[in-house]
């Protein structure tokens, strides 16, 4: 079989594995859309700027949505497979090490695409959101690329936490980080200290990039936000590499 087959099959089975896991598939695929229906479509009814709210929340719930697969699918998956010894078995096999990580990134982007698509359908069909084609494509691309830093964060957690601790840890990270990054309520309504804190959180930077495509960001330079996301991705990968190296037999593994 060709070398590309390994990558495609790893990706496909990684996707199927999670699609068949209700504990992962149901919350990650439906929560962002459900929140969107509730807060963007139902609760903002009758408000004057309905289209504005629905547009803003398309971007910020999109960010919320693409955080999930990397953390819960990739991160928790790595923790479990590491604890079970499956990771070692795969690294001892002829599978290219890169295929292990790359397939999980592709799985996260695939789930993210489904989440983003569901939000776009809701927004344009029921929310009265109108975006130019180029604008919509740019927003979708930013969101899908934005899944990658959260894969790195998931890998960092999964490389240190054991299989049972990983999911609770991810939950502790995920929800507060989303809230404090202004994904649920705009940062302006929060105390100034929390607004400052948001600057150290990766979702804040992704949300700034996403909302910039619709002209609703805080107006900082995109290079700051892109730089911050690249920095965090590199830092998380480094933390992951250190974590994996603690395990003696994984010391020859190549991360990414």
């Amino acid at each position: 079989m060709g070398a590309a087959t390994v990558y495609l099959l790893e990706w496909r089975y990684e996707f199927i594995r999670l699609l068949r896991s209700p504990g992962f598939a149901i919350p990650s695929l439906t929560f962002p859309a459900a929140f969107y229906v509730l807060f963007a479509l139902v609760m903002s009814m009758g408000g004057g700027s309905r289209g504005g709210m629905a547009t803003y929340l398309l971007a910020s719930y999109g960010v919320f949505g693409v955080m999930g697969p990397g953390l819960f699918g990739f991160g928790v998956g790595v923790a479990i497979e590491r604890s079970q010894g499956l990771m070692l078995l795969k690294f001892a096999s002829p599978m290219p090490h890169r295929a292990y990580f790359l397939s999980k990134v592709l799985m996260s982007v695939t789930f993210s695409a489904l989440i983003v698509a569901s939000l776009f359908v809701l927004a344009t069909t029921f929310g009265g959101v109108t975006l130019e084609v180029g604008q919509g494509m740019l927003l979708a691309s930013i969101l899908l690329l934005g899944a990658v830093p959260f894969c790195a964060l998931g890998l960092a957690i999964g490389s240190w936490a054991n299989g049972q601790a990983a999911a609770p840890i991810v939950n502790l990270v995920y929800l507060p980080m989303a809230a404090l990054s202004g994904l649920w309520f705009p940062l302006r309504v929060m105390p100034e200290s929390l607004q400052t804190l948001a600057w150290v959180l990766p979702p804040f930077h992704l949300n700034q990039l996403a909302t910039k495509t619709i002209g609703m960001d805080d107006g900082h330079s995109i290079y700051i936000h892109i730089g911050a996301l690249i920095f965090y991705t590199a830092a998380f990968l480094w933390i992951a590499a250190v974590g994996l190296r603690r395990e003696k037999a994984l010391s020859t593994a190549q991360v990414a």
Partner: peptide, 11 residues
């Protein structure tokens, strides 16, 4: 064949 306590359960 290593000491592996589990494989992906849903596959």
């Amino acid at each position: 064949m290593l000491q592996v306590s589990g494989l992906p359960e849903t596959l």
